[in-house]
Design a binder for these strands. Structure first.
Length: 424
RNA sequence: GGAGAGAUGGCAGAGUGGUCGAAUGCGGCGGUCUUGAAAACCGUUGUUCGGGCGACCGGACCGGGGGUUCGAAUCCCUCUCUCUCCGCCA
């Protein structure tokens, strides 16, 4: 959520920045300013009436104490009208606040100045590519066939137990999965992130805090009995650790990492996008979350990008880093880098990580602040997060790119975790 | 799941209808003293919204929501959470 202060003080700047996300916000902003001014005026009137009532009440207290009962009764009569007016103002104020928030919440975050203009994924900017050269060979098997051939991932079985998009990992496939999780966590810990294991279900407040609610309600699995949501990413519980928290400036940057399964309904997906491991309802991911001083959140973002880059490099996958254009960015993000790895049998790039700086957008909803040493004031902190990494597409690319006639070669860095060098 | 107790400022802990945003202690910050430090002493120390250039002024906040009352941290209802005991259980 954008701050009112920013909208009030830099109206034209906000409108201009939102245009990069292809949002014409002029009308909405005008409405917000109007509603905010209305809110202020109502509060002003309301406060005055409350002050009056407080004063009279005090006088009544004094009169009763000194035994002037008749005077006290007289004064009580005065409050009758006053209370009625206050009741109305209170209602008006609540209405004005709600109305304002309803509109405010529809505005996405402002894109950073480096975000390219554009409508869709085609306008994303390739920052750099890396890893081994892409191997072109039409005889390569796609990962879903390899999974069957070596009996390591069973999609049909998952379909029987739960439904489409819930695969069962078996034997070396299961161990491989677990090895990747451990590898990613260890790498994150070595890079200074503190590991946490969060709850995999969250309440409504948490869903709201990181921006999944109310707009992305349909993307999450919901338990209506207790009103809990299965997490779509560890970002939600981990970032919500800091909901309503004031951190010390000296604690920056706060760096957390967490493994979690992620649950996504993915309504409306179809075709080659959902084939095999490409898009699942349940998948594993290691997430990194950073709470940063606004002064250096962008250098933290670069560090996170470096970290993710080191992971795909160590796994020996061809990758590229994209800076997302305004039209392809998420609602809450100010700057997002996507990582894609090349899947040699499918002959396409697969997104495996998304690293973003949300600046104060999430913090404003979360009420995540820090005590500024210089001014002694509470200020909104910056939040950032990224996948490091999401497993299924990494597994898909590793299976496809590392296939040989003898089996699938396990990357060197994973062997200490798997205990085997080849899947056959 | 059943019975009981509780939720107050950074922490501990008073306060059961009126000048209480809240005693006191600890902690934090500033100062006096000291070569320096400790101790002692003095002062200061919550968040948030609105008005004002400002000094300041006003509103709200004692787990959340609602009610009673001229007036609620205090009384009533309700929800959530914590603790103790019993039951069940990985």
């Amino acid at each position: 959520m954008l701050t009112l202060k920013l909208i009030q003080e830099n109206t034209e700047f906000v409108i201009e920045r939102l245009a990069v996300k292809n949002v014409d916000a002029r009308k909405t902003i005008g409405k917000i300013i109007e509603l905010d001014n209305k809110r202020k005026s109502v509060q002003n009137q309301s406060d005055n009436k409350l002050a009056e009532l407080n004063k009279v009440s005090q006088q009544i207290g004094g009169l009763i104490k000194s035994g002037q009962k008749e005077q006290a009764e007289k004064a009580k009569q005065v409050t009758v009208n006053l209370k009625e007016e206050i009741k109305q103002f209170t209602q008006q104020l609540a209405d004005a606040e709600n109305e304002l928030k309803d509109v405010l919440i529809t505005l996405p975050n402002l894109p950073h100045s480096s975000v390219p203009k554009g409508k869709s994924a085609e306008n994303n900017e390739v920052v750099r590519t890396g890893g081994p050269a892409i191997f072109e060979n039409s005889n390569l098997l796609p990962h879903w066939e390899l999974a069957k051939k070596y009996d390591i991932i069973d999609f049909d079985l998952g379909n029987k137990i739960t439904g489409a998009g819930f695969p069962v990992y078996k034997g070396k496939g299961a161990k491989f999965q677990r090895s990747l999780i451990s590898f990613f966590l260890d790498e994150a810990i070595n890079a200074g992130f503190r590991e946490v294991i969060p709850p995999f279900m969250v309440n409504e407040d948490s869903g709201y805090g990181t921006g999944q609610l109310p707009d992305k309600e349909g993307q999450m699995y919901h338990d209506a009995t207790d009103n809990f949501y299965l997490i779509p990413t560890a970002e939600v519980p981990v970032t919500n650790i800091f909901r309503d928290v004031v951190v010390n400036e000296s604690d920056f940057p706060v760096k957390y990492t967490a493994y979690s399964p992620c649950f996504r309904r993915e309504a409306g997906s179809y075709g080659k996008d959902v084939r095999g491991l490409n898009r699942l309802h349940q998948f594993d991911k290691v997430e990194i979350v950073v709470i940063a001083n606004p002064k250096d959140s962008y250098s933290q973002l670069e560090l996170m990008v470096k970290h993710v880059e080191s992971l795909v490099t160590k796994l020996g996958l061809p990758y590229r880093i994209l800076r997302l254009c305004g039209g392809d960015m998420g609602f809450t993000s100010a700057l997002t880098y996507d990582f894609e790895v090349y899947s040699e049998a499918q002959k396409r790039w697969l997104e495996v990580s998304s690293v973003s700086n949300f600046e104060t957008f999430q913090a404003n909803r979360l009420k995540l602040r820090y005590k500024d040493d210089a001014t002694k004031k509470n200020q909104l902190a910056h939040t950032l997060n990224g996948s490091a990494l999401a497993l299924p597409r990494i597994v898909a690319a590793l299976l496809e790119n590392n296939q040989t006639s003898d089996g699938i070669i396990v990357p060197e860095v994973l062997i200490p975790y798997t205990g085997f060098k080849i899947i056959n």
